[in-house]
Computed example of a mutant assay.
Amino acid sequence: MTIRSILCVVDGTDASAATLGTALTLARQQEAYVEALHVEMDPRDAAPLAADGATSTMIQDIMDTVEEENRRRSQAAREVFRREAEQAGVRVVDPDAEVPEGVATGLRTRRGREHEVVAARGMVFDLVAVPPRRDGSEPPATATLESAIMETGRPTLVSPGQVPAVVGKHVAVAWRATVPGVHALQGSLPLLKAAASVSVITVDEGHSGPAPAEVARYLAHHGVHATPRAVEPEDRDVGQAVLEETEAAGADLLVMGAYAHSRLRQLILGGVTSTVLRSAAMPLVLAH
C-alpha cells in the first residue's frame, strides 16, 4: 500500500494552513496528490436557526449574512492554498482534470455541512488531514475531525500550530492492543516504511495483547525496523506519558488509535486521544 491521495480541509485559518503545509510535505515524500477542500455553509441550513415567528425579511437577512461570511472564508481559504502550495513548491492543478502524475495539489469548494462533506469525500482518499481546535476550548476535536476519524475508514492527519521542518523521519507508534490500534498501524505502513527510524511505544495499562516486541516483529515482515519500548505510566496521565515518551524517542510524527464513547448520540473522543490532541507538539496520524 502507498499513499497516493490526501484530502485536506482548508478553512482559511492558521490551523488549516499548518495542516495543509504538513499534508504537502508528506505528499512530496509519498509522491501524492493533495486535494484541498473548502466547504461553504449552505444558507438554507442557517434559516431553521431563526426563532419561530421570524419574518421572511429576517430570514433573508440571516441568509445574506451567511453568504457574506462564505465569501470572506472562501477568500481566506484561497489565499492559504496559494501561499502553502507556493512555499512547498508543489504544482497546482485543476481538481476536476485527469488524475495528475507525481506531486500536485488542487483546491475544491463544496457547499454543505463540513463534517458531512468530509465524511463522504474522505472515503475515496488514502489519508484525510483536518485542522484541530487549538484555541483552548473543549473538546479539542471539532465535529469535522471526529467525522474524519470515525466515519471515513481512513487514517487522519492532524498537525500542530505550525508546519514542522521535518515530518515522518522519526515515527513513534503509540501501541495499544485494540482494533483502532491495528487500523492505525496498518494505515500508517507507507509512512513507517519511509521513516529513518520507528519506535513502538506501549504505556502499561494492564491490558493483554501483543507486546511492542511482537508489533516490531510484524513490522519487520514489511521491511520496517522498529524499536520496541514498554514503559510504566508512573504518576503520569496515560496521554501525557505517551507524549513524553514520543518526545524522548526523538519522534517527529506520532501514530495511534483513536478511541471514543457514544453518549446521547454525541461522539466524544476518549481521554487519551483528547489529551494527545490538546497537547501534542508534533503531527499525529489517528485511526479508529
Score class of each variant (00 low, 15 high):
180 P>H: 02
114 E>H: 06
180 P>Q: 03
120 A>I: 10
125 F>R: 13
200 V>Q: 06
207 H>L: 11
176 R>Y: 00
133 R>E: 00
83 R>E: 14
202 T>N: 03
203 V>E: 00
164 P>S: 10
122 G>N: 05
105 T>F: 06
191 L>G: 07
109 T>E: 15
180 P>V: 05
192 L>R: 08
131 P>W: 00
96 D>I: 14
143 A>E: 07
134 R>W: 00
187 G>D: 08
142 T>C: 01
190 P>D: 02
146 E>P: 05
149 I>Q: 03
161 G>Q: 01
126 D>A: 12
172 A>C: 08
140 P>R: 00
170 H>S: 15
92 V>N: 03
182 V>D: 04
208 S>F: 01
205 E>D: 06
93 V>T: 14
128 V>G: 05
182 V>A: 09
113 R>C: 06
146 E>Q: 14
201 I>M: 04
111 R>C: 09
157 L>F: 13
198 V>K: 04
206 G>I: 13
110 R>Y: 12
197 S>W: 01
162 Q>F: 09
96 D>M: 13
138 E>V: 08
107 L>R: 03
186 Q>W: 04
183 H>A: 11
139 P>Q: 04
130 V>A: 01
95 P>N: 03
93 V>I: 13
184 A>K: 05
192 L>F: 07
206 G>F: 09
201 I>H: 05
137 S>P: 04
118 V>G: 09
135 D>A: 11
134 R>F: 02
158 V>N: 00
159 S>E: 01
137 S>G: 12
206 G>T: 11
89 G>N: 13
131 P>G: 00
170 H>V: 14
125 F>A: 14
118 V>N: 06
115 H>I: 01
208 S>Q: 11
141 A>F: 00
150 M>D: 01
105 T>I: 13
105 T>C: 13
150 M>Y: 11
121 R>M: 15
145 L>G: 02
174 A>E: 05
176 R>W: 00
171 V>G: 03
186 Q>T: 14
200 V>N: 02
140 P>K: 04
130 V>Q: 04
109 T>K: 13
192 L>A: 08
142 T>A: 08
204 D>G: 10
121 R>E: 15
135 D>S: 05
106 G>L: 10
180 P>M: 00
107 L>A: 12
199 S>N: 01
146 E>C: 12
84 E>I: 07
187 G>V: 09
94 D>F: 11
140 P>D: 04
166 V>F: 09
190 P>A: 05
100 P>M: 12
138 E>D: 12
126 D>M: 10
165 A>Q: 13
164 P>A: 08
199 S>E: 05
143 A>M: 04
208 S>Y: 00
85 A>F: 05
114 E>A: 15
128 V>W: 07
197 S>R: 15
154 R>E: 02
198 V>I: 06
200 V>Y: 03
185 L>C: 08
190 P>Y: 07
205 E>N: 03
200 V>C: 02
196 A>I: 02
134 R>A: 13
113 R>W: 08
180 P>S: 02
184 A>I: 09
118 V>P: 12
103 V>L: 07
170 H>Q: 13
159 S>K: 03
191 L>V: 11
